[in-house]
Design a protein around this nucleic acid. Structure first.
Lengths: 202, 202
DNA sequence: TTTTGGGTACACAGACCTGTGCACTTAGGC
DNA sequence: GCCTAAGTGCACAGGTCTGTGTACCCAAAA
């Protein structure tokens, strides 16, 4: 028996709507009345599921904190695929930066809870890179992982203000250079400058 | 006694206070009453100098848009010095990310004016890098300049959530690799690894 | 049938926000 | 002395926000 009339629990319906509105419009810009109206429920019901807006914000961010799915592709490909997926997300018109960075920027330095989960998220991404690099046998996996997340977050910030998916491609090219410099094989050399003269077929 | 109590014009005093509060606490988090109280003037006076809060926000961002001062140091040094100055700013406890990125994140996609000035700022920084790279004779100055701003913005975003000035150092190391890869001399090689085998395929 | 849990509708308190109106004061220039 | 400009103090309109209180409805379980 499939449950077609109630596809999700009430809590999940609220969270889905909150996610859409918080992320696209901003946490401070959206009131609980707006969320309740969009879900089609009364504000009282919303407060029966979440004790406060802060709790809803926390749940929103926790729901955004999804771990990367494991992949069986080679680690180097996985790393570079990150930037391809980033480019796809940039191209979507409902992309509006990193929800964690945005939340920290919006809620200010006072909100310890938000900052905590944002730090945890950023570190989890960094560790993902580091694990892939370790698999590749890179010596300075930790330092290089940090540099890669800089490229990720940099392209996200740039795309947020410029709406330019090419930022993801630029980040990918930079990542290739960093990886190659660390001894990782990342396929053909993307730098067609003067250092190659004989074995470069167009 | 000369004029120690009124060192600047009223408009400038308002802007200084607005800058401090907007930047540290967030634009949406600070009301005009708070700014007026902190300056020590009446709200009426504030509105006599700025027709609306939006105008004050615009003036705040425009005042933040200062061009980099010209320097007579070698271009490569100038580029790397950018990251040193970034690290110093990260270490200061009153650093809270890029005001332009924060404003775009806070005010949402609806605010065209804010987005416009943010784009102009980001592009001006990118062009500064590009000019230095052109001076260095780098072929792909444009693409490399984009990659460098990714490192800058990435380290800013990371420091915003992690409060870790080491992000600036990581960005600097990555920048060195990118520059060296483009043929720029950036001093001693920070990577003493095994890449010495120039013509030996593994 | 009765109870009970979840949802609704709606009003409201209390706070904060932007922006305006108005009468008053104060200081400098003529 | 007089006039003007700038600022003050304060109230207030009209809006939004979070969060609560209350009375009601309805369906399913006991």
């Amino acid at each position: 028996m499939a449950p077609p009339p109630a596809p999700q629990t009430m809590k999940e319906r609220i969270l889905q709507t909150a996610d859409k509105l918080f992320y696209l419009q901003g946490i401070r810009a959206i009131g609980v009345d707006t969320i309740a109206a969009e879900v089609g429920i009364s504000k009282r019901t919303l407060y029966n599921h979440f004790p406060s807006k802060d709790a809803l914000i926390a749940a929103y961010l926790e729901r955004r904190f999804v771990s990367a799915r494991p992949s069986d592709k080679p680690p180097a490909e996985q790393i570079l695929a990150t930037f391809d997926s980033l480019e796809r997300r940039f191209a979507a018109k409902d992309f509006r930066g990193c929800p964690f960075v945005n939340a920290v920027a919006e809620l200010g330095p006072g909100d310890r809870a938000v900052k905590k989960i944002a730090i945890a998220f950023k570190e989890s991404r960094r560790l993902w890179f580091r694990d892939r690099l370790t698999e590749l046998g890179v010596a300075e996996a930790d330092a290089l992982a940090t540099q890669l997340v800089l490229l990720v977050d940099g392209s996200i910030a740039q795309d947020l203000v410029r709406d330019d998916p090419a930022m993801a491609r630029a980040a990918k090219e930079a990542a290739k250079v960093l990886l190659r410099n660390a001894g990782v094989d990342v396929g053909e050399d993307a730098n067609p400058a003067e250092k190659r003269s004989e074995c470069a077929p167009d």
